[in-house]
Design a protein around this nucleic acid. Structure first.
Lengths: 345, 345
DNA sequence: TCGTTTTTCTAGAACGATTTAGAAGAACGA
DNA sequence: TCGTTCTTCTAAATCGTTCTAGAAAAACGA
């Protein structure tokens, strides 16, 4: 039962291994009669078809693209934004009969070599919201694996599908400025706050390039405003709750809170409601992404075409007819009930 | 630059390939000095570490578990229930430094051999809501890949992590019966309706084992009720909308609609609202799964510990200390505002 | 000092396929 | 009839590792 290989089948049929291989991969290289005899014998012997690893080794194609996420893989699924990206990517992958390999980006032994990025059998990689200097990116580069990032990197030859973070945030900033807000707290993703205690950060400490750029965008159109940066942990609903709690329970409440993702902003909304505060009246709230829940909650946000982003990444990775290697996707400010005029002092 | 292999490094350092291999995989098999010299030279030469495919071939371990979904992969991400499962599975996978390989289950050439299930380099597989007789399952079995399903299969030696579908549905049925409902429409996932036109089915035509079992469960505690089975397409919000539209716009309205998943039930809720109908008053609505959105929408539903289900599947697949191969997870009826007494005739 | 164990390293055979170049025979055209 | 072209199949090399068994050297115990 076990240990049936190409050779076994070849011997049983009385042909060379090459012919059996051809029966599977190049049907027009042998007569139909023989091919059928081979496949029949294979079935009889319980041969499951060419071994995946062996084929990958010899042919140099793994038939899978890797997907890299920030932080914990389990986390990624808690943000509908990330899920939307995956859905778009999966759509294209499916079209090209390619699998998606989700790689945990655990910190363990990233240098030593026993991590998934090092070990994964992939032909290409999609990099989702992984900060620029991350060691995993070096590993990929070193392995010579073509990659597309969702952030514009520094290298001019890196492929990416991104939005104009600064411009997108500037649009939101303009909206807020026009409403009279001059005291804003920005909720960001931060590893150090993941312990549970919210932290207040300087722009330099923020880390993730896209977060930094968004804050710069806000500054651009809100030059007179005081912008504070707060984190309640990783990018998740609970972090938004914690970050907002910290801000709302302090003596020094802002007039507006901007979550750098909708999940965080929705967490903040929850914290407001618990305190009897109405978004848009008592305090303005805005997010980024425009996930489905944002609409239901009436959250003002900056929409990104996330599924298209996933599709575009997939095309660059898999579709040879796609030549564009750097793509800027459009964004749109969606004003809903969670934003309103700043209260007069 | 290209073509740097173990051998290249070995030659450069002046040792045997085995030793270089050991430098990466068995650090205690050689002196620290030599190991460092090897790693340094490797870095210098631009060697990216042992090739994934070659390693997989020789050692027989791919370092990845496959995940099989019903229908389109992109679909899977539209159901928070499926996403929750993935999150749980990912958590365990991460712990064991294993990647998750999402395989498209496209119908193309499933027999011929050019499909993902056939080609994937995986050590094990998680099977999520794939109906019993699906050819992909045979392929896995044929390849000798250990698999765990989220449905109890027919084979006694198959591993699974599931719920008692009949009992869970029976619980819901009892609730509905007690409220006086005797005319119920069940919304199911169905491929034939995916074209756009809703269809009405008999129990035999339902297909997916778990759907069938749930309907049987309802019948069990609602023996006097008329149960009709309707599908608006695949398991998705839009299908729920379509299915409900078909039912609501007919002459023969039921007093209750049961979605066999929350996303479908929520779609039905949308259709009701558009028609000015209030769930729980004008018509009772219930679902399955208890996804986060169900709570927000006030949907009565049967809760499944979906993330735990994912975790349990992961443990069976990856954790050698887990001996239990068949696991029944608890369910719980969650009554919310969408269910109410049947209107008197 | 002489076995004996331990450490450190190596040779060579797998692992299971695909690929390249080419042989043998059939079919073809003139 | 003979040279040419197709079709059908094969031998042998190769992909880049890891594994098994064992050799050489070093360390050890008495």
């Amino acid at each position: 039962m076990a240990g049936v290989t190409l050779k076994t089948v070849a011997k049983a049929v009385g042909v060379s291994p090459s012919t059996v291989s051809n029966a599977y991969n190049k049907p027009d290289q042998l007569s139909t009669a023989l091919r059928e005899r081979i496949l029949a014998t294979a079935r009889e012997l319980g041969y499951a078809g060419p071994d995946a690893s062996a084929r990958a080794l010899r042919s140099g194609k793994a038939g899978a693209v890797g997907v890299l996420f920030t932080d914990k893989l389990a986390y990624a699924f808690s943000d509908p934004y990330a899920v939307g990206f995956l859905a778009g990517l999966a759509e294209v992958a499916e079209e090209f009969a390619t699998s998606l390999l989700l790689m945990p980006l655990s910190s363990t032994d990233i240098a030593g070599g026993s991590n998934a990025v090092q070990q994964a059998a992939i032909d290409a990689a999609a990099i989702f919201c992984v900060p620029g200097g991350h060691p995993a990116l070096d590993i990929l580069a070193n392995r010579g694996i073509p990659a597309v990032s969702t952030d514009r990197g520094d290298h001019p030859d890196l492929s990416w599908v991104a939005i104009d973070e600064v411009e997108a945030a500037a649009q939101l900033g303009e909206h807020l400025a026009r409403l009279g807000h001059r005291d804003v707290v920005v909720l960001v993703d931060n590893a150090e706050a993941a312990g549970g205690r919210p932290v207040e950060l300087t722009l330099d400490e923020v880390g993730y390039t896209d977060c930094e750029l968004r804050i710069r965008g806000l500054q651009k159109t809100m030059p007179d405003a005081r912008l504070r940066i707060v984190s309640g942990g990783h990018n998740a609903f609970a972090s938004g709750v914690r970050g907002a709690e910290y801000v709302l329970d302090s003596q020094d409440r802002p007039t507006a809170i901007v979550g750098l993702s909708d999940v965080q902003a929705l967490g903040a909304m929850e914290a407001m409601k618990v305190r009897g505060l109405t978004p848009g009246r008592d305090l303005t709230l805005a997010g980024f992404d425009d996930i489905p829940a944002a609409e239901a909650a009436g959250l003002t946000t900056v929409r990104q075409p996330i599924k298209d982003k996933g599709r575009a990444v997939g095309r660059i990775l898999l579709d040879p007819s796609t030549t564009e290697r750097q793509l800027l996707m459009p964004t749109q400010l969606i004003v809903r009930s969670s934003s309103g005029p700043a209260p007069k002092r």
